[in-house]
Design a protein around this nucleic acid. Structure first.
Lengths: 353, 353
DNA sequence: TTGTATGCGTTATCAG
DNA sequence: CTGATAACGCATACAA
């Protein structure tokens, strides 16, 4: 009945026989309130179907109540690893909702050089989570400015060396080391590495892990077995040609993400029907495709969902500290989560002599 | 230099030698303004690095500037078809950004019965896009209330029979019909159907298309060849057992989404190493996994990205019509996009005699 | 414990 | 074309 008519706070106050300020206090649970009036106000509000305007509240408090999420610009939407973002967004969404915050998603446009502070100036967000950033001059500069502005923000899954930005990252070096060590445990020695673009710190981390694993056994990376793709399946497919050429020197391949690994696998299967020569493969991300493909792909699982949770939680606490949000990060600017190796058939020891 | 200090509109006005009202006019491009003062104001604003508060503006205009996106509650994040949401979100995001709007993502909580109107009452959003809705009493009720409230909203990829909700949907009946017709063109006659839960209108549509294709050739669905999964890969895998049992009666299987198709494929490969018996398969969604799996999976491509674009565009125009936003939908409540069949090896005619 | 009064940063109305 | 000025709906310091 009364649900559809819009109720004002004035009406609630009148019906409850109190002032608007008291209504406000009750609804926000601040200040000491006599239980009786509290109930009276609540009743009135309920009866009138009163819903406070979040917008007005935000305005008065000068807090948007939003956590911003910056997503990278993706010309062809299909290109990006949707798994990655879905998981992180889910983690963030579930976390912020518990605290009454919302997620405002901000798609980068392709052209413009990144600029983050205005999201705060416009008061669209109280904190910012930056996803899919690359190590490029414009990005570093934008993030530096953002940090100087003192607003709470965090970079996810990307490390900017020497900047000390607040970051939630994964120990990709260790993840990679484990992967390669596993390959060596299986008896493989000539291990090729198909990496991603070096604008992602991930890629460098993975290389370090790769190198470390080799060195632990007294080996060194062989430049001729190092390849670089762009994380897309097609690039893995294309590099399959190169690897096939050197197949005599290659025991196994460690690939920086599953999508490239899948492409590589496809191409190698076309080129090397001879099972005996087929190299072992370990991918990265443990995405859905890992156990879809044939043979099932060993892969390094990355806790994307948990990264989202953590990033969100950090930003929330930064928002609560009404003081300087950035304070929180002064001590522990970098949070590191652990990856985990999932072993499947693609990297098992060859049975034949 | 001056970038970091927060500039107020007052200062801009002073520097430009005009009133605050004029600053506002210039920045909003409203009313007639002498070109000279316009430039003077713009200069001043630029020089001071003044950024108007979107929050205050929204408050004054009583428009949040946000398009809300309701996402379904997913207990285990990994379960949901991330491809689906990523594409739709990308489509929406790119569209709304062009108009200066933002996307506010609203994760459903598992418990609560859905309630949408309060997002408007709280003035968090100006329009709402509902994703992943199921045909359940609570959902219908919530959407009915929302419509009665007169706020602009749209349901994506789900049809509520008899309600006339504004919807952006795909012609899944035709998509399915094409898929099954294709199978028959290839010479298959005993076609099993692995469908999804019937709480999704999609599933019903697909069944209709399945039935229609058969009837065009004078056939009728065989109840014993109808199966239902939950869209997850595991359910496809499990139903592989059932289908293998009746493999003598099954030529081909039409599967309601790729993930189940992939699961089915895996299980059948385990159970039926005998290539001769292996049924043809057509999946649905044309997700990445379709051409990863072995054999590459024929599938019905669904224009998710375009659905997001369209839904967003509709909501934007509804928001612009400052009158009653819902007016827009009075005439064309349902928008239907077309699916497309992508043929790959999994459904090709058997070469053997 | 509660009421009063003021401010939040814009937009928009109404004179001039 | 431009300048005052009143909302906008709520939070909060200050009074009572």
């Amino acid at each position: 009945m009364s649900g559809s008519i819009i109720a004002t706070r004035r009406e609630v106050a009148d019906l409850a026989g109190v002032s608007e300020a008291t209504v406000s206090r009750v609804l926000n649970g601040v200040g000491p309130i006599k239980e009786e009036t509290r109930i009276r106000v609540l009743d009135a509000a309920n009866q009138l179907g009163y819903v406070p305007s979040n917008l007005a509240r935000s305005f008065a408090r000068r807090k948007s109540g939003n956590i911003g999420v910056v997503l990278p610009y993706i010309p062809k939407a299909r290109l990006f690893s949707s798994y990655y973002f879905s998981e992180i967004l889910s983690g963030m969404g579930n976390t912020v909702r518990e605290q009454g915050y919302d997620l405002l998603v901000l798609f980068r446009s392709g052209e413009e050089t990144p600029e983050y502070e205005s999201f705060f100036r416009m008061q669209k967000v109280d904190a910012l989570v930056v996803l899919g950033a690359k190590d490029e001059p414009g990005e570093r500069e934008a993030l530096r400015k953002l940090r100087e502005s003192g607003h709470p923000f965090i970079v996810v899954n990307q490390h900017f060396d020497g900047e000390n930005f607040p970051e939630v990252d994964v120990d990709h070096e260790e993840g990679s080391r484990m992967a390669v060590e596993h390959l060596m445990d299986q008896g493989y020695r000539s291990i090729a590495f198909l990496n991603g673009p070096l604008t992602y710190s991930n890629s460098l981390d993975r290389f370090k892990g790769f190198e470390k694993a080799l060195q632990q056994r007294g080996l060194e990376p062989d430049d001729r077995l190092l390849f670089e793709g762009n994380f897309g399946r097609r690039s893995g497919y294309a590099i399959g040609d190169d690897i096939a050429k050197r197949i005599d020197e290659v025991d196994a391949v460690f690939v920086a993400n599953d999508r490239m690994a899948v492409g590589l696998l496809q191409r190698l299967r076309e080129l090397l029907p001879d099972q005996e020569r087929f190299p072992a493969i370990v991918g990265y991300d443990d995405s859905d495709s890992a156990d879809i493909c044939v043979p099932p792909l060993s892969s390094v699982r990355v806790p994307f969902y948990e990264m989202g949770e953590l990033a969100a939680r950090l930003m929330l606490t930064a928002c609560e500290d009404s003081s300087n949000g950035a304070e929180v990060f002064k001590e522990h600017p970098r949070y590191l989560l652990q990856a985990e190796l999932i072993v499947r058939d693609s990297s098992k020891k060859r049975t034949g002599g």
